[in-house]
Design a protein around this nucleic acid. Structure first.
Length: 334
DNA sequence: TTCCAGGGGTAGA
DNA sequence: TCTACCCATGGA
């Protein structure tokens, strides 16, 4: 891991109002090809939701994150690209940047972009797929998530039964509960469960406008604080448990039903359960059933041949219909 | 005004 | 297990 560093003139406020010098440090992560940071960042709508941002002009993924009471900005850019590997530059701004913190934030980036997942088998499927064969050329195939599963679950609950723009507004208003990174547009890190609890049902309903979802969000935060349920332990379970076992854990969460649970399962790197929602039905109707509304069983049958990659196959079939994906395909000469 | 969106919970059959 | 209905919200 290479490391470059310099201290900036700015000061950051620490515990008890004590200030410490803002620093900037940079490290790199090597990613095997095929990989495009832009394709991963724009793989679905999470990049529109604080504290994650994508700057298309600068081709930069940004995250406001925290360690204890300190708040940091993490910027990720593509560096050197060879035939085999892409180098990612990870630039961290914040106070008291020691090795442990840099390692912690680098791990967050790896988790968000699922960089440790081997997609060779998925790309083999894509090569003989009528539309997905372009993914390898674009460098697409990885989907973005938030580093914390607590954050992913709350965002998923906000996305139920609303159009996406409305979900983004709910999520961004919840994010405003979190501590501010004062040196860059006053953006917030994602709030801890205890901070959401402190903001209370009044904030969630009257400010964040999450409606009936407030009770589910507060219960998740309460269970997390009590130690009754640790959402972030799901990442540990995902390494050893079957998808069915993980699914049971996810479905036990208030406000998480089959569609959300299957999407969350994908965030944990398990793609063997289809996330069937209104967009799935619309996509399958357009692409597979000649405009006829398909049943759940028909959708399952269509994607069954893709085995443990079925949810990733369906998602990227839909993704390739988006204008951003079409533009990336055009740039790749496809 | 009505419908619906990147659904979930619950009651009743 | 399946179906119907209700749940807040806000854009179209």
């Amino acid at each position: 891991m290479s490391l470059a560093t310099h201290a900036e003139g700015k000061m950051a406020r620490g515990p008890g109002g004590v200030t410490s010098a803002m620093e900037t440090k940079e490290t790199t992560i090597g990613v095997p090809q095929p990989f495009s940071l832009r394709a991963a960042a724009l793989s679905h709508g999470w990049h529109e939701c604080a504290p994650i941002m994508w700057c298309d002009a600068g081709r930069c993924l940004q995250l406001v994150t925290r360690d204890g009471v300190d708040v940091f900005r993490v910027s990720v850019l593509e560096g050197r690209r060879t035939r085999r590997r892409v180098s990612l530059r990870v630039i961290i701004d914040g106070p008291a940047l020691n090795e442990a913190r840099i390692e912690r934030f680098t791990c967050q980036v790896r988790t968000m972009l699922k960089l440790d997942q081997d997609l060779d088998e998925f790309y083999t499927i894509c090569r003989s797929h009528p539309t997905l064969y372009v993914l390898e050329r674009i460098g697409a195939g990885r989907t973005i998530r938030s580093a914390s599963m607590t954050e992913n679950i709350i965002k998923m609950i906000c996305g139920t039964n609303v159009n996406w723009n409305q979900a983004v507004k709910m999520i961004n208003r919840i994010a405003q509960i979190g501590p501010i990174f004062p040196h860059y547009r006053n953006l917030n890190a994602w709030p801890a469960p205890r901070e959401i609890l402190a903001a209370g049902e009044t904030y969630l309903i009257e400010v964040a406008r999450v409606g009936y979802r407030a009770k589910s969000i507060l219960k998740l935060c309460q269970d997390s604080c009590d130690g009754t349920f640790d959402p972030d332990a799901l990442d540990k379970h995902a390494k050893t448990e079957s998808s069915d076992r993980l699914l049971k854990r996810l479905l036990a969460i208030d406000g998480v039903g089959p569609a959300s649970a299957h999407a969350l399962l994908s965030m944990l790197g398990h793609y063997d359960h289809l996330s069937i929602d209104s967009s799935t039905v619309a996509h399958v109707s357009r692409v597979h059933t000649s405009g006829k509304k398909p049943t759940k069983h028909q959708i399952e049958a269509i994607y069954e041949p893709y085995g443990r990659w079925k949810n990733l196959v369906w998602w990227f079939e839909l993704w390739l219909e988006w204008d951003t994906a079409k533009a990336m395909a055009a740039e790749a000469g496809l």
